[in-house]
């Protein structure tokens, strides 16, 4: 019987959070998209900015967002806990979101998952099982921070992870010889001039 709780208790205590001028400007730009008095509509975007700055969302960051948008803090907590994309616990530098929904699973996401779990140390990599990422044509798919790495198998994911370890950024997209989601091995139709 799993204990349900949205509020993680075992997170490091962060005393202070403030937007850097850079991020603050971006947040202000988001808020400007909405009429005056409706700035709360920007909450998801501003929370995302806070997460990008901090790496995850400590409570002080949510409080800061609430203050910036003139909302009750609880309204921000509600949103941050609703969306799985908001990380309420610290995570590694690279978040590996492994899709395990049916198409990816049929194409071997289990092996990819195993490789990712093996790599996850909490500092460089953290791993998260996610539902369909919408890249079924290129299954199996792993989202690493903002980019999709596609058409993976055990060997290619390890190659990608190794590159990240070395501090490089491997090229996102299909990891086999394929142009985006075009047929593997080249075009099958419209081949003639």
């Amino acid at each position: 019987m799993a204990m349900i709780t949205a509020d993680p208790k075992d997170v490091p205590n962060v005393e202070h959070f403030a937007f850097t001028p850079d991020y603050l400007a971006k947040a202000k730009a988001l808020m400007a998209n909405y009429p005056p008095g409706r700035q709360a509509s920007a909450v998801i975007g501003v929370l995302d900015l806070a997460q990008r700055q901090q790496g995850w969302l400590p409570r002080v960051a949510m409080d800061e967002v609430a203050k910036l948008l003139d909302m009750a803090p609880i309204r921000v907590y509600e949103i941050a806990t609703f969306y799985t994309m908001f990380q309420l616990k610290p995570r590694g530098k690279y978040l590996l979101q492994v899709c395990t929904t049916t198409p990816c699973w049929l194409r071997g996401s289990e092996a990819v998952m195993k490789a990712c779990q093996h790599a996850a140390d909490g500092e460089t990599f953290s791993v998260q099982e996610v539902e369909c990422l919408g890249g079924c044509v290129n299954a199996p798919v792993v989202q690493i921070n903002d980019d999709f790495y596609e058409d993976l198998d055990e060997a290619s994911i390890n190659k990608v992870l190794d590159a990240f370890r070395r501090g490089e950024t491997p090229k996102p997209g299909p990891q086999i010889d394929r142009q985006t989601s075009a047929p593997v091995g080249g075009a099958t139709t419209l081949r003639s001039e």
């Binding site: 349900i4 609880i74 907590y77 509600e78 609703f82």
Partner: peptide, 25 residues
Amino acid sequence: ATEVAGVEELGATGRGESMEVTTYV
């Protein structure tokens, strides 16, 4: 709490089976 009492302190966090009514803090 939000409308009558005027203290926006209660909310529903999480979603689906994980939804909880709480003050969070």
